[in-house]
Design a protein around this nucleic acid. Sequence first.
DNA 1: TGGGAGAGCGTATGCCGTACGCCTACCCCA
DNA 2: TGGGGTAGGCGTACGGCATACGCTCTCCCA
Lengths: 207, 207
Amino acid sequence: MPRPRSLTHDQLVAAALAVIDREGLAGLSMRAVAKELGVSTMGLYRYVDDRDELERLVVESVLGAVDTTPPPADAPWQERVATMVRRLRDAVGARPGVIPLTVTHRHRSPGVLRWSETVLGILDDAGFAGARRVVALRALLGYLIGALQLEHLGPLSGAGTATLAALPSADFPHLADTAHHAHEVGADEEFHGGLDILLRGLAEARG
Amino acid sequence: MPRPRSLTHDQLVAAALAVIDREGLAGLSMRAVAKELGVSTMGLYRYVDDRDELERLVVESVLGAVDTTPPPADAPWQERVATMVRRLRDAVGARPGVIPLTVTHRHRSPGVLRWSETVLGILDDAGFAGARRVVALRALLGYLIGALQLEHLGPLSGAGTATLAALPSADFPHLADTAHHAHEVGADEEFHGGLDILLRGLAEARG
DNA sequence: TGGGAGAGCGTATGCCGTACGCCTACCCCA
DNA sequence: TGGGGTAGGCGTACGGCATACGCTCTCCCA
């Protein structure tokens, strides 16, 4: 009966993402999002309980966009798992600014739940059961979360690489050598190389 | 010649850790640390440039405590790598409150550099070279970072488990089953199970 | 044609990090 | 023994943050 609402959650999320894209995650504030929408700061609180809920909406918009339909069942299970991992990485990688938020809010995301369900289904097909399947899923999730952060939060503004280059290579011979080789390995190869290692291990541990 | 300093970096770090232990990471502030030391807020700035440097000191105190001497070379390389991973996990696990800080400041930590150097040495012994060794190290670091967060930031206040239990198990049959089995798997077994998978994969990929 | 539910906003509070400038304790040297 | 200059420590103040609270004004329905 009363005055109709003028904003949707989608608009809130879009505004928040615009702020993050423009000013980085540190620039995200209730004030900034409100200004982005041309609304007073307190107006936002008609739509979300608090900042935490706004962040949750943002995370869910990114994570909920992941395709969680099971990949074609005729492919080997390793390939199907890899497909699922890739989908999640691609979704998050397209919005690197929200990575810290995904870590904080991950456990409350329906999108991640659906993703996990699909992956568990594939692992089930592959013969993983009981505790072994729990461990397998957590290993995959763990690698995914860590690798994404390594990839996007690592050499912030090149400080990491600079630090590495300035190392007394006498004290850190292997690191110096590794830094040299790191140039040859792109982020994609690195991620997929690690995933491949994990999948090989899973195949062995399937027992 | 002038008045001598009354505080050491160690005292700053100890005070910061005390605050974190007592009030959590969210309770860490320059004001809180200063009060802990019985010093005015601005007095801290004689010892650190800004909050960021204080955090760096805290992280380095935790990460720098890791034993980075190479494990006995007569053990298999997998076991030596596992030892290194375990040392880092134990150090961080003893101070779960600082995990988010370690993620942010990791790439500037001499402790992590020393750790990496030692691990690279082991991988070198094991026959890993060039790009393959880069990928192996990143896979280990990725898993470590992700698994630690999964372990300590996951079911914050049991919200994760509660969410899981409230799931419509018809829509998420595998997850419901997994939640059931998850009770049987302790954090240690889970972590080491994942590490074991990774190490098996490394052995295969060593080629 | 009211009446009231609820949207939107303005103000205010109490946090935060930290720039700036003063006072003063201290050590060195005469 | 006393004086001077260095630097430690502190108080104040500013701008930004999330958000509690209460007002106003709009719109739908009776």
